[in-house]
Design a protein around this nucleic acid. Structure first.
Length: 309
DNA sequence: CGCCTTTGACCCGCGC
DNA sequence: GCGCGGGTCAAAGGCG
């Protein structure tokens, strides 16, 4: 059994060290899959089991919500007691410090409907918010419910494994993702999503499952809003024990909830592996810094591996 | 035929 | 200016 962790971060700003890096201490050894109800035998059954509570896919998180690098929650699985360090954006788009940029870039590169502040001459090219997670998987391309077209593949420096580039095939949607294997641990697939879907998940009907998404307000996509990925009501008691911050107010299942979402990538992968007789994946969500080496600093990976043993 | 992957070429930003 | 590396383009080919 994988010795993994599920953790929810609170509204509190995570610990930050002198280098402006977030430190997320995970302190449980219970797999996120341990606390999920038994997987139904088929995808359709799973939908029927959860559709009343969960309607959207993992990527809908990207479609609806902004990611504030100073307050974001994530769900992670890792091993034993682990300190995860996530570096801040190098090419941050939503930094309170430089603060004034518009996060919602046009859905299409050709669209100019959103007015941005006049760009400085040498201003960096605007980038969509990114969200990365690591999955221990034999399969490179995890099914997240959306349809993707591969448009490139590049060798990665200092890695024997190439990086693949995918674009959402839905017209008008410019979401991209990159998939690559960790050179430190080839069993880990790092998937980085960039952008926001402009459409519902095509596979929502078959992929719905997972976590409810609570916000601290009813608004969505508001810069600075905080988000929780929390378990269904009947699992909350257990889940709260996994919250990294004991000062976090109890999650209120009756509070306003914002766009019920699920992590279809996570659970479809798990289900696929179940169906194929594989061990469930372990997944770690990370805030992307733009480059894989930024996302997963080598030292951090080593530390994680060491603590894994 | 439509959709997809493959892959070399090209573009761009950045550091030296 | 040049080289390097990341990211994208687009033609060609495969597949159902």
């Amino acid at each position: 059994m994988a010795n993994s962790v599920a953790a929810t971060f609170s509204d509190e700003i995570p610990n930050m060290n002198n280098n402006n890096n977030f430190i997320f201490p995970f302190s449980s050894n219970t797999s996120i899959f341990d606390i999920m109800p038994p997987a139904p035998s088929s995808c359709d059954q799973k939908v029927s089991s959860y559709s009343s509570s969960f309607g959207a896919g993992f990527m809908d998180l990207l479609a609806v919500h902004d990611y504030n690098p100073f307050s974001f929650d994530c769900v992670a699985t890792t091993t034993t007691t682990t300190t995860t360090q996530i570096e801040n954006y190098h090419h941050r788009l939503t930094s309170p410090a430089d603060g004034s940029e518009v996060l919602n870039t046009p859905a299409s590169p050709n669209s100019t409907s959103i007015s941005l502040k006049p760009k400085k001459k040498n201003q960096k090219k605007q980038r969509e918010p990114r969200f990365a997670f690591m999955t221990q998987s034999d399969v490179d391309q995890l099914d997240d419910g959306y349809r993707w077209r591969k448009y490139g593949q590049k060798a990665v420096k200092n890695s024997p494994y190439p990086r693949s580039y995918y674009r959402c095939t839905t017209a008008g949607c410019s979401v991209k993702k990159r998939v690559e294997r960790s050179s430190d641990d080839p069993s880990i697939v790092v998937t980085t999503y960039e952008g926001q879907h402009t459409h519902p998940c095509p596979a929502t009907s078959r992929a719905s499952l997972g976590f409810m998404h609570y916000g601290n307000s009813a608004n969505t996509g508001v810069l600075g809003s905080h988000h929780h990925f929390v378990l269904p009501h009947h699992q909350q008691q257990f889940h709260q024990a996994l919250s990294y911050d004991s000062t976090t107010p109890p999650l209120n299942p009756t509070s306003e909830f914002v766009n019920p979402s699920s992590f279809s990538a996570l659970f479809q992968d798990q289900e696929n592996h179940h169906n194929q007789g594989f061990v469930p994946s372990r997944t770690t969500f990370l805030k992307d810094n733009g480059l894989l080496q930024d996302i997963v600093p080598t030292q951090m990976m080593k530390e994680m591996k060491e603590e894994d043993e």
